[in-house]
Amino acid sequence: MPDTEMPPATPTRESVRAELYALIEAQFPRVVAPLTDDFHFSEGGVASLEVMMLVFDVEETFDIALVDEGLDDFETLGELVTLVHLLVARKGGQA
């Protein structure tokens, strides 16, 4: 048995997607499921202030800084998954 701890696994794109989907379903219960990466926030009836709140919660959940990195410009859920995964992976030293 190795006597050193294994480094925490960097979340995969799939695990980031699953966590984001759960966050959005909790925050916007009126958004009709099932969610897909094609979900378009403004066309889906999510107000701009709600998107700001979502970004804040995403940053809290993943301990990342979308706004500071200038990466809070997205229109679809798939784009948000990509941005979050990018920052999470970078934080884990793999990007």
């Binding site: 202030l49 700001m52 709140m53 970004v55 804040f56 940053e59």
Partner: peptide, 9 residues
């Protein structure tokens, strides 16, 4: 430096 984005309104 982060606070909730709806703090101002």
């Amino acid at each position: 430096t982060r606070v909730h984005p709806l703090t101002v309104p």
